[in-house]
Design a protein around this nucleic acid. Structure first.
Lengths: 353, 353
DNA sequence: TTGAAAGCGCTAACAA
DNA sequence: TTGTTAGCGCTTTCAA
């Protein structure tokens, strides 16, 4: 009678010794290789089943030179959008037999590089990543280039880099922004402002572009633009008060504003708070649309109309692109850029009353 | 001149062939083994550096029988608390040279089991996990027992299982709840209610217990308890309207309620919305405290006072416990349960005005 | 029908 | 000072 060793996983070697056959016989039997006689096959399979044999993943990875795991590098995990993306990646990955390993850059170039190096040495088959703000700022992409040159495929999402050739999944930020602003105009807003980030944040820049496109398309001149660029740090909850003050000043300075498109939920909610202080009622006196259909939009009072980025779908697409490339024998598969459409979720802040 | 092959990572074998020495010489040289002559060592290291040699993780894992990666299984990733925990785990793990691989159970027992099996076959050195609601309900813990019996350490957090012996990191739910309720009473509330989950959700049950403890300690009798147990599904944003209605009915039925302790942010915000409908002003007529210091609490209007669980610290502790056990030679290290204190974050919903 | 051997990339004991 | 060899767990070709 075989006594399973509590501390050591069952290996082919153990089974072979127990049954009295060779390792390769066991391997073949477990794979239902017809070479092996019905008799020994049964015996081996029964034994394996009884003691719950599971092949060692690491050994398989070494042998096959693929790990069946995907590395995901994101700037920040305490962030609704990124978590929806991860959930999408995970769903597709799992269903195709892949694991997901997560690295956080915390918006730091340094950490992004280290994390990628840590994973690129055999731990994963490919990356799905969204670069840190610092990387965007420094414009140093050597780590991405090197990874790709080593034959490790990368799929970039959301914050992508034009200079890097690889598969990409992006949100149509400028189009989404444009539609949001057009909606505000159509609702009767005469003076639509945008609250956005500094321009080096790519998605902020694109959304600002969309804002301008919308105004142009309705023949509103550049002199009637109201653009509030906010410093990076104001996004942090610890500066919530300061953020509100800055927006309040902006609204005071431009009292005719009756529509606001904010490039994220936080700016949108702060704008609503500021408006209240000025006795402007939302949506009666001021209509607001945000970006990202997160938890804040749903539970805000009034609930926030917003452009959904469909993060989960984005994640699913990214995982599909990566896995397709990993499993395709065709090395010269052309790179693809998938655009995930945004969608306006209409809630209370755009109600016409 | 060595021409690096774009598609294949540099291995010891390659280097050995290039330099004209044996594989083990290369291995030793790169580890600064004094056996190797200064001369060859320099040559080898220079070459490795030039072509950016990095040892293959998988090979090391197989050799060392440890992967230096931690498996984290959580019920849900689009959830503020869990993301803060992950960020804590990641920080400690990375700093100690570990990677983090994530599996999502989506609150399903089945997915929890599959995910764990997928990772337990050599991919990771140990688990950090919070069980799914379904697992709590079914009370089937065989997968946890088997994993532990195989010698794979587990650290459970937040949703832990008494029957399973392992390291644990928990939030002091009942104590936190008690303190929240005491605070409401101290603020002058005469009639404090709790909005909680069904009792099979462990943390809900504990928080309800804390509520009762607080009342008892202030000599408030059982007949003056107001407990609203809410169905699971009402937590989902798609039922936001229904949730509000249920709470509204509850408040109508108990018009004397002037303090609410809600076991999560969502219930708290919905209670505030419902109160508004009844023309109760928060915090003047009704004071509210939630649980979890998430994004909703910070950006709500009025901003929500809440019990912070310090998820990041919890994650850090969990990672420390696991890594300590992984790296300790002492197998019989006693199991520990670390309690992370909650902390009341006072905001507008408990202002005395 | 079964088994031996090589190899995935690396380390380390031992031999030369 | 350097190299040979065995082994981590598995697959697969080739030999018996």
């Amino acid at each position: 009678m075989y006594v399973p060793n509590q501390m050591h996983k069952l290996t082919l070697k153990n089974i072979a010794k127990e049954i009295g056959v060779s390792i390769s016989t066991v391997s073949k039997a477990l794979k239902d290789n017809p070479e092996i006689s019905e008799d020994t096959r049964q015996k081996i399979k029964a034994f394996a089943k009884l003691y719950n044999y599971k092949p060692n993943n690491i050994a398989l990875s070494l042998k096959n030179r693929k790990t069946k795991t995907i590395g995901v590098i994101i700037p920040e995990i305490v962030h609704y959008f990124f978590t929806t993306v991860i959930s999408g990646i995970e769903e597709v990955a799992n269903q195709r037999g892949y694991n997901v390993i997560i690295g956080l850059s915390n918006e730091s170039f340094q950490k992004e590089v280290i994390n990628m190096e840590m994973l690129a040495n055999g731990s994963i088959d490919g990356f799905i990543l969204s670069v840190s703000k610092e990387t965007q700022l420094l414009k140093d992409f050597h780590h991405l280039e090197e990874t790709i040159n080593q034959g490790m495929p990368i799929v970039m999402f959301d914050r992508t880099i034009n200079e890097i050739l690889c598969d990409k999944v992006i949100v149509d930020d400028s189009e989404g922004a444009k539609n949001a602003v057009l909606k505000l105009i159509d609702l009767g807003c005469k003076d639509v402002a945008i609250i956005t980030t500094e321009d080096h944040v790519n998605v902020g820049k694109l959304r600002t572009k969309g804002y301008k496109m919308a105004l142009r398309s309705r023949n509103i001149s550049k002199s009637n633009e109201h653009i509030l660029h906010l410093e990076e740090r104001l996004y942090d909850p610890i500066f919530i008060k300061e953020l509100e003050v800055v927006i309040l000043d902006f609204l005071k300075l431009n009292p005719t504003i009756d529509g606001i498109f904010a490039v994220n939920e936080v700016y949108a909610l702060s704008a609503i708070k500021a408006a209240k202080k000025l006795f402007k009622e939302v949506p009666k006196d001021l209509k607001v649309i945000g970006f990202t259909d997160g938890i804040l939009s749903k539970y805000a009072t009034p609930s926030l109309s917003t452009m959904s980025q469909h993060g989960k779908i984005l994640g699913m697409k990214a995982a599909e692109l990566l896995i397709r490339r990993l499993e395709s024998t065709d090395v010269d598969f052309p790179f693809q850029t998938v655009i995930v459409e945004t969608e306006l979720i209409e809630r209370e802040t755009t109600k016409n009353i």
